[in-house]
Nucleic acid binder design. Structure first.
Lengths: 152, 152
DNA sequence: GAAAATTGAATTGTACACAATTTAATTTTG
DNA sequence: CAAAATTAAATTGTGTACAATTCAATTTTC
């Protein structure tokens, strides 16, 4: 009455998906103590990265950049607004769109954040070129998935 | 009065972390339609993978395997219990520990899930050897982070 | 140009993540 | 062996994710 063994493909350690999931949460965990002094969570930090790069985007444009929908972004942006880092305002040209803009405090935070990437590279103990090639492989994978027939 | 440009290291597309975060959510999205017929979410599927491999683990042991804490696992396991896939029972030897065991239905679900890994490999459009090497790089990264002095 | 379709945010509801606290059971120690 | 320390789950509270719906503002179409 011996139970069938689990086929190899269902073993946790074989799964690319779990390796991704675990690595992603691990790296987010590295950011936590670095972002805490800035009063940001990791997804909030991503939104700030986008805005530091290009200010005055709509919720939709932020969502395209980060692959997040309004159900995630709306409450997140309200928290950033409550923290005094961004403003939210309906656009004159099209009142359906909400313009997200950095406040002075939001822009100023960029200087405080500027050391984080280097600090993280240290924490990861991974040579720069390996980090870059891993990053590029992951970007390629994401592209493949999002342009595949299953995801549209 | 031109604003300072954002330094390269703060650009979203430079970030390994964002590549990881986006890839992880993308891949989870591929699972969603495959898991929906089984009535499982992706983290629930991971728990089932562990139990199919080794039944009768405690919450703590599951947490070690998946790197999740009881705050995440307790409600998730209650949902799996409500779905009739697992049982939760205090251990006789040590009543602090809760033993998680597959029901017959939980074990039977393994057969339904057996096609998923292959189906996913197809979806990802990535050669098997590349999937494996990417997986191993990610596992190495996770190891590095978890054994680094910052994470203990 | 008004009805119909589309679009962009917001809202609602479910399910993670994870820090922090609580509770109960077991171990360790004086 | 009893008080103190430790451990394992559960609970509480905050913040994502994301599907689905709603609502208001535009566009399209007849």
């Amino acid at each position: 009455m011996k139970r069938q063994p689990t086929p190899d493909q269902l073993l946790l350690d074989q799964q690319l998906c779990f390796a991704l999931y675990a690595a992603s949460r691990s790296v987010t965990g590295l950011y936590r103590p670095l972002l805490e002094p800035l009063g940001l969570t990791y997804p909030q930090y991503l939104v700030m990265l986008v805005l530091w790069e290009q200010d005055g985007l709509t919720v939709r444009e932020l969502g395209q950049r980060l692959q997040l929908d309004s159900g995630t972004l709306t409450p997140l942006l309200k928290r950033l607004q409550a923290a005094g880092l961004v403003t939210r305002q309906r656009r004159k040209q099209d009142e359906r769109e909400v313009d997200i803009r950095l406040t002075d405090a939001g822009l100023a935070l960029r200087d405080q954040a500027s050391g984080i990437p280097e600090c993280l590279a240290q924490c990861m103990q991974l040579p720069l070129d390996q980090m870059q090639s891993l990053r590029d492989e992951l970007k390629r994978l994401t592209q493949l998935i999002q342009h595949s027939p299953n995801e549209d």
